[in-house]
Amino acid sequence: MSSLKEVTDANFEQEVLSSGKTVIVDFWAEWCGPCRRVGPILEQIAVENSDKIEVVKLNVDDNPQTAAKYHITSIPAMKVYQGGEVVKSVIGAKPKPALESELAAFLA
């Protein structure tokens, strides 16, 4: 089981858009194999950088409104939110070093 908080259509505004922190949202689904691979990597990144970022998950099947709003057409998709805006998108499962370098600006 994932240790990451699940956000929903209902609380996305409050948990992500209005958050004072940098929030990385992992858009995922149960049936997506690559999502299951990248999940544990994101958990590690979340733990190792807990002072700088928060990582949450959004199940695209259960929360279609948010997935549609952010034009998710490929998962896993990881979007970085600051002050309610998407400041970075990463698409596709990547090894930890690759993800870390993509997200480097937010982990430093």
Partner: peptide
């Protein structure tokens, strides 16, 4: 890629 172009039908 990831914005309409995909290599994985089962994923996307």
């Amino acid at each position: 890629s990831g914005y309409g172009i995909s290599w994985c039908a089962t994923c996307d």
